[in-house]
Simulated assay, not measured.
Amino acid sequence: MASGKKRSKKSAVEFRNTQLSDALQTQDMAAVAFALRHGPTVVPLMRPGARDDPRDSGEVWTYRDPNTGDVALLLFSDALHKPDSMPKAVGLHSPAWLRAFLSAHEDVITTVFFDIAGPHPLQATPADLIAALDA
């Protein structure tokens, strides 16, 4: 930049869905459903997508319980709510992407957690989220 000023953090992509964060705070399921239908979801990634390929959304990270084998999908309203112990990479995915991913993996994923480490965690089944996205 000619002025020598650094770019502000506001110019960077923000990995959050404020509506979803607000809905989780109130635990209002109708508001959660609305936020999922109309805004992005922060998804932890094992491998980020290729920047030059818009079709590559990365490899989604899931948790497999070592005792039961159950698979959980962890989603976040804000990348700041993701625990440091998880992979660093995140994706900001659309409602259509979430619907397609849940449909493709509904038989494997047993539960979905939102903001599992807080501040306002919520748990749902893939079927419940698909119904919310379809409403």
Rank of each mutant, 00 (worst) to 15 (best):
T125Q: 05
V112M: 02
A23V: 02
L122V: 11
L24S: 08
A2D: 13
D115E: 01
R51V: 12
K10H: 09
I116E: 12
V43T: 11
G4E: 00
K5S: 12
H120T: 09
L122N: 07
I130P: 03
V108N: 02
M46K: 10
R64W: 04
P66I: 09
V32M: 11
P126I: 00
S103C: 11
F101T: 00
L92K: 12
H105M: 02
F76A: 02
Q27T: 11
L122F: 13
S11R: 14
L102V: 03
L92G: 09
K6P: 08
V71F: 03
I109P: 03
A124Q: 12
S3Q: 04
V60H: 01
L122E: 09
T125H: 09
V42H: 03
A31G: 10
V42R: 02
L129N: 04
K10T: 10
S103I: 10
L92Q: 04
P40N: 09
V43W: 01
A33T: 11
M29T: 15
V43Q: 03
R37M: 03
A72Q: 12
G58D: 00
Q123T: 13
A96D: 09
K6G: 14
A124G: 07
A30Y: 06
S85I: 12
V112P: 04
P95S: 00
H38W: 07
A35P: 05
R99C: 09
A79Y: 08
L75H: 06
M86D: 05
E59Y: 00
Q27K: 13
Q27R: 13
A79F: 10
R99D: 09
K5Y: 11
L75S: 05
A72T: 14
E14K: 15
V43G: 02
R51A: 15
F101S: 03
A104K: 11
R47L: 06
V43N: 03
V112L: 03
D115P: 05
M1R: 13
M29W: 15
P54K: 07
I116S: 12
D84F: 13
H93G: 09
F114W: 08
T26S: 15
L45W: 01
T125F: 08
R51D: 12
R16W: 07
A35G: 06
Y63H: 14
V71K: 10
K10G: 08
W97C: 06
L45P: 02
D70C: 07
A50E: 13
A30R: 10
Q123M: 14
R37N: 06
L73C: 02
S103R: 15
A50Q: 14
S103A: 12
A30N: 14
P48G: 01
V43K: 04
F101A: 03
E59W: 01
R37G: 05
M46S: 08
F34T: 15
P83Y: 01
N17F: 10
K5H: 11
K10M: 06
A23D: 06
D84Y: 13
G49D: 01
I109R: 02
T125G: 13
R99Q: 13
H81A: 06
R7Y: 11
